[in-house]
């Protein structure tokens, strides 16, 4: 099985116009609860067209982090609630998958009520991201997010990334869905 390795701190280089410092720290905060560096994710892909992936539908993602980030992570856990922390962690992982597995080009962020929405300006597609610390919830959450993503206000196609961080391991569902309209 193919393996992609990277330090989590690289996401700021790949997305220089997004503020991701806290996302990076949040991700380490969640990963270190279950694993030492590097954390290894099993990624299952659906309808993903990627030069790097080729015909494969699964690969391993190995995410490492620096000691300095780990120190910040320890402090962050006490200042932020678990749900947003896990959502920010999942966003960090998503920002590894794009651009490295699928390059969506420039991402635009909009605010919609209480949530952040991400959209590719180059591919006319939205990026829906979610995270959970309950591994058994992964499938249900993924289905929910597909539905939500396809109801996006742009009527665009959707990439959905759902991450599960738990003591049973790290799992990711990464899928692409065409809008029906």
């Amino acid at each position: 099985m193919r393996r992609f390795k990277c330090p989590i701190e690289r996401i700021s280089d790949w997305h220089p116009r997004l503020f991701l410092e806290l996302h990076t720290v949040a991700c380490v905060s969640v990963m270190r609860s279950y694993s030492a560096s590097p954390a290894v994710f099993e990624v299952t892909c659906e309808n993903i067209v990627s030069d790097w992936l080729g015909e494969e539908t699964q690969f391993m993602l190995e995410v490492s982090w620096a000691e300095e980030t780990e120190n910040k992570a320890e402090r962050l856990r006490s200042t932020i609630q678990t749900k947003p922390l896990v959502e920010m962690a999942a966003s960090s992982i998503a920002f590894i998958l794009t651009p490295n597995i699928v390059n969506l080009g420039q991402l635009d962020v909009t605010n919609y009520g209480d949530r952040a929405d991400y959209r590719s300006l180059d591919q006319q597609s939205v990026l829906e991201i979610s995270g959970t610390e309950t591994a058994s919830e992964l499938g249900r959450r993924h289905r929910e997010k597909i539905k939500q993503a396809l109801e996006n206000p742009f009527r665009s196609d959707a990439y959905v990334i759902v991450c599960a961080f738990s003591k049973f391991g790290f799992l990711i569902r990464f899928s692409y869905h065409q809008s029906e309209e």
Partner: peptide
């Protein structure tokens, strides 16, 4: 327009992150 969106995304992503940590 793309440059404006880029600048806005930088600011908005910071606002969202800082709000999350209070």
């Amino acid at each position: 327009l793309k440059e404006m969106m880029s600048q806005k995304s930088e600011i908005l992503s910071k606002a969202q992150a800082l709000s999350e940590i209070g």
